[in-house]
């Protein structure tokens, strides 16, 4: 009996204080799960309330194109198309410029140049979106009106908001792509040079394809950011849903709509209030799908080179 008792003193003692501290840290980690659940419950419950309204026919959500919920018109397409158009324009700017900048920084720039340019890109990424909104309205819009004529380009238009949004996501696409490009092993480049390829050929035909999944992940994250971008759209793209494919027209995006409706004194029982949650849910699901997609691509390139 005594012989079995003795080694007990070497056993790990359970200390209450240690356990409490660990429990607190676990709770901290779990807060993020609560956040996600909160988002799903908030958006889902209000969306269900919205569809419970007698004047709402859920099928019309995707079969019609007019959005004014207080008179029963719930064609969400007018908000979705404008979001997709601004996103498309943003990517049109950000993909070529962001990618070319990434290739320059990763393949061409000397360490000194890279160390000067990267902080500048970080500053550009740190500028609040409301400032970009001001830039779109007071710089890009007048510029577009000067080029295309002020009778063609409206004061509030999707083109200006989309292009400036593109400038905003250049640093994001650039830094994520650069990480992917730099993860490509040096031996691949040496092999290409050894076969007589120029630096451009090596960059575009060897390094870029090798880093493709990481580059695609960057583009997907950029897309997700452009879709969820709010203040540029609310400031420069226009106030009021409009089903149009003309980028020089004014049309409200999904996020812009949510901000405008909730910014006023909205009655919590009105259909306007519940309707912004169905828009929010659509937005959340779109960005969530894109985030999962980008993770898939990121993991793919990690598997290859790490």
């Amino acid at each position: 009996m005594t012989a079995t008792k003795h080694p007990n003193s070497l056993k790990r003692k359970t200390r209450l204080g240690e356990k409490l501290i660990q429990a607190f840290f676990f709770f901290c980690g779990f807060v993020s799960i609560f956040t996600t659940l909160g988002i799903v419950v908030a958006l889902g419950s209000q969306a269900l309330r919205f569809f419970g309204e007698p004047s709402i026919n859920p099928i019309e959500l995707i079969t019609t194109t007019n959005w004014s919920p207080n008179i029963g018109e719930i064609g969400i397409w007018s908000l979705v198309t404008s979001t997709l158009i601004t996103t498309f324009l943003a990517l049109l700017v950000a993909i070529p410029l962001g990618l070319a900048a990434a290739i320059y920084l990763s393949e061409y720039a000397t360490p000194k140049v890279r160390n000067t340019l990267k902080p500048i890109l970080e500053i550009l990424a740190g500028v609040p979106t409301v400032v970009y909104g001001y830039f779109a309205l007071t710089f890009m819009t007048p510029l577009l009106r000067l080029i295309f004529g002020s009778d063609v380009v409206k004061i509030y238009n999707m083109a200006s908001a989309g292009l400036v949004c593109g400038v905003m996501i250049i640093p994001l696409i650039c830094s994520m792509s650069e990480d992917a490009l730099r993860a490509v092993p040096r031996s691949l480049r040496e092999g290409s040079f050894g076969l007589g390829a120029t630096k451009l050929e090596t960059s575009l035909r060897v390094v870029l394809p090798a880093a493709l999944s990481g580059v695609i992940a960057a583009i997907v994250v950029g897309t997700s950011r452009a879709i969820g971008e709010t203040m540029i759209m609310a400031t420069a793209a226009g106030a009021g849903p409009n089903f149009t494919f003309n980028p020089f027209e004014s049309a409200e995006t999904m996020a812009g709509h949510i901000v405008r409706i909730s910014g006023g004194d909205v009655d919590y029982n009105s259909i306007d209030y519940t309707s912004i949650f169905i828009v929010g849910l659509t937005l959340f699901l779109m960005t969530l799908a894109l985030n999962f997609l980008s993770r898939y691509f990121v993991n793919k390139y990690r598997e290859v080179y790490e």
Partner: peptide, 15 residues
């Protein structure tokens, strides 16, 4: 969560 648009957090806060 890092990739969720900030406006969605606003709606969470509102609700």
């Amino acid at each position: 969560l890092a990739g969720v648009p900030s406006i969605i957090y606003g709606m969470l806060g509102l609700f």
